[in-house]
């Protein structure tokens, strides 16, 4: 039958976008967070350019507040794919005074990543940063383009985006401006999990059930780490959990789960009643939290 199934069509679309980036830009970079979406991106990039190696480096913005497992996983993946890795350190941005650590009980380095990201983009003169953002994640992302233009300050102007028609992508820019590129814009959370399953892609162990020291804040389970401050009513306990998304440890919500395999996770998600970003503490700050962060230059 001469008809692609939906995962094959989404894969073909993402590969097309990745090749378009390599063709239209001088210095692209792939933003690698260690999360499942960016792992899928690296696999798609491998497929897009095979048998050549991925023609751009991976960039990890390291908040210093990571799940240890993701760092090991990152280094293995880079080795396996013979890729080039650049690490941008939020700690260095703080030490040099470029970024100021948040204070208080909900302190997170998630927002500070933007400072480091923009600095690294500037330092290496990257003109396209490829990210794993998806339009189904959050309402501010629903209007995001595949090729998202950023001005010389790295900012996004949602009201003045370039129209995107057919599969014609316009990556023209002035000196100093750059683009954020989202090859898996049209994927949903379920598509990503199904693709991971179909392709038998390895994931960091934190995506599967494990015992972890956690505490509950306003209905969201958060991982405990020594640098985190607790409210008097919060107590650390050990629970069986898994991550649904992976961000900075201070704001990544965990799901109570015994899912041990991709099949388990897929049926668990099918039955879940909360979107994956519903567990992200950083989005709970306000109704337009994501929109504001994106305008400033967040991923």
């Amino acid at each position: 039958m001469l008809q692609l199934l939906h995962l094959a069509e989404l894969e073909s679309e993402a590969i097309f976008i990745l090749r378009e980036v390599a063709a239209q830009f001088e210095q692209p970079v792939l933003l690698f967070s260690g999360g499942k979406d960016s792992i899928v991106l690296v696999h798609l990039a491998k497929k897009a350019f095979w048998p050549a190696r991925i023609p751009f480096p991976l960039l990890h913005i390291d908040t210093g507040h990571n799940f240890e497992e993701t760092i090991h996983f990152r280094d293995d993946l880079v080795g396996k794919f013979n890729a080039r890795l650049i690490v941008g350190s939020v700690q260095e941005s703080i030490d040099s005074g470029r970024a100021v650590e948040e204070q208080g009980i909900n302190a997170s380095r998630n927002v500070l990543q933007t400072v480091t990201l923009l600095d690294v983009i500037e330092k290496y003169k990257f003109d396209a940063a490829i990210g794993g953002g998806r339009r189904d994640e959050e309402k501010a992302r629903a209007k995001e383009r595949f090729f998202s233009h950023r001005d010389e300050f790295g900012q996004w102007d949602p009201k003045n985006q370039r129209p995107e028609l057919w599969n014609l992508f316009n990556g023209k820019k002035r000196l100093g401006e750059n683009f954020r590129i989202f090859p898996i814009s049209n994927w949903t959370e379920m598509d990503v999990w199904q693709y991971l399953f179909q392709e038998q892609i390895e994931l960091p162990s934190i995506y599967f059930t494990h015992d972890r020291e956690v505490f509950n804040r306003d209905g969201v389970w958060l991982a405990w780490a020594p640098f985190m401050k607790l409210k008097p009513t919060e107590k650390v306990e050990v629970r069986k959990v898994r991550c649904r998304t992976v961000g900075d440890i201070t704001c990544t919500g965990l799901t109570l789960s015994t899912a041990n395999s991709l099949e388990d996770i897929i049926s668990e998600i099918a039955a879940t009643r909360v979107t994956e970003r519903g567990g992200r503490y950083d989005d709970k700050r306000s109704d337009a939290a994501m929109e504001d962060r994106k305008k400033e230059g967040y991923f």
């Binding site: 339009r135 309402k139 629903a142 209007k143 949602p158 814009s185 049209n186 109704d287 929109e291």
Partner: peptide
Amino acid sequence: TDGLRAEREQGITIDVAYRYFA
């Protein structure tokens, strides 16, 4: 289907929004 803040405030849709379901 409400999207950006400006749209929510003005009760209008400014731009193409993409939605997904299965």
